[in-house]
Amino acid sequence: MRTQTNDAAPLGRPGKDVAGRSPERRWPPLTRTHKILFGAVIVLYAVVVVGVLTNSWMVALDWDTMLIRPYKRWPQLLPYLNVWIIAGQRGPSAIAACIWLVWRSHRARSMRPLLVMGTALLLLNMTVGGVKIVTGRLGPHYAHYMGSPELFAGGQIFPSGHTANSVVTWGVLAYLAVRHRRAGALVAGITAASIGLTTVYLGTHWISDVLAGWTAGVLVLLVLPLFEPVITSVDDRIQQLWRGRRGASQPSPAPATAQGWSGWDQAVRDELAGVGGFSDDQTDRPTGRPTGRRGIPG
């Protein structure tokens, strides 16, 4: 594999500058599309929250949907959706996700997949859990007054934790995917949508609960890239401690092409190069023709 060199880089030890300092890692800033999407989701989340707090048309929509009682109108779906909603809970979904994350961490020799999931779930619990406690909303099966938003009554139903958790859990798996990322994102979206709609069918959540859960989960995924420097720093420290316990005196110096890359980044870079046969100059090995693809994940 050919590698690119930086002729303007100062001479020095591999992985360090002339002053002996480690190169500073720089993550690209959020794109304009990312910022626009983040702003739009925040506005949507605020609209749902304010709509519920002010007993607006959002609450009327909740009651209209609840009074339809979908689980009674289409009872033939009840056995299947009962199983599906249980599979979508945090316990079963977390077990399935952790199996893949442990395998991914082992293959890349990096704790980053588990750290990313842990960070996402921590953000989810802090944000969604906080709103649940503050609003204290009751679910449809425990509602007391027709047309009431059922707020500050000791419940913990708004936003929907089921829905937000499915968005974050499966969204993180798509976020960490090296290949088939678009397919993973599509599967994550379908799963999160079906879990939310199933809670409405069963009458365990209001429509506004699900809308708030979807947007809250998406906000966690949009904020997650901002925590990458911290995640990578922790991952590097864990790897250094592990090498120290195995008797390594110091980490081996990084090659010139990996300056500023974490262990996870380099593992993904090597995996893509090995699987797809791409080099840094974006040429096809057998023919030497440009492929139009990058060998480094975006």
Score class of each variant (00 low, 15 high):
Met1Arg: 03
Arg2Asp: 02
Thr3Phe: 13
Gln4Val: 01
Thr5Glu: 11
Asn6Phe: 04
Ala9Tyr: 04
Ala9Asn: 01
Leu11Phe: 10
Gly12Ile: 03
Asp17Lys: 03
Val18Ile: 06
Ser22Glu: 05
Pro23Cys: 07
Trp27Phe: 15
Leu30Pro: 13
Thr31Pro: 14
Arg32Glu: 15
Lys35Phe: 10
Ile36Cys: 05
Phe38Tyr: 13
Ala40Pro: 06
Val41Asn: 07
Val43Gly: 03
Leu44Tyr: 05
Val47Asp: 08
Val49Thr: 15
Asn55Cys: 13
Ala60Lys: 15
Leu61Phe: 14
Ile68Cys: 01
Arg69Ser: 13
Lys72Arg: 15
Trp74Gly: 07
Tyr80Cys: 07
Ile86Gly: 04
Arg90Phe: 10
Arg90Ala: 15
Gly91Ile: 12
Ile95Tyr: 07
Ile95Trp: 11
Ala96Tyr: 11
Ala97Trp: 13
Val102Ser: 10
Arg104Ile: 00
Ala108Phe: 12
Arg112Glu: 14
Pro113Asp: 03
Leu114Phe: 12
Leu115Ser: 09
Leu115Cys: 04
Val116Ile: 12
Thr119Phe: 07
Ala120Ile: 07
Leu122Arg: 04
Leu122Thr: 09
Leu123Gly: 05
Asn125Glu: 08
Val128Gly: 01
Ile133Phe: 12
Ile133Ser: 03
His144Cys: 04
Gly147Asn: 08
Gly147Tyr: 06
Phe158Thr: 09
Phe158Trp: 06
Pro159Val: 05
Gly161Gln: 05
Asn165His: 06
Val168Asp: 01
Gly171Met: 09
Ala177Leu: 12
Val178Gly: 04
Val187Ala: 12
Thr198Gly: 01
Thr199Pro: 00
Thr199Lys: 01
Thr199His: 02
Gly203Trp: 12
Trp214Tyr: 11
Thr215Ile: 04
Leu219Ile: 13
Val220Asn: 11
Leu222Pro: 13
Thr232Lys: 08
Ser233Thr: 09
Asp235His: 11
Ser249Phe: 03
Gln250Met: 03
Ala254Asn: 01
Pro255Ser: 02
Pro255Val: 02
Arg269Gly: 03
Leu272Tyr: 00
Val275Arg: 15
Val275Trp: 13
Phe278Cys: 09
Ser279Val: 02
Arg285Gln: 08
Pro286Tyr: 09
Thr287Gln: 10
Gly295Phe: 10
Ile296Val: 14
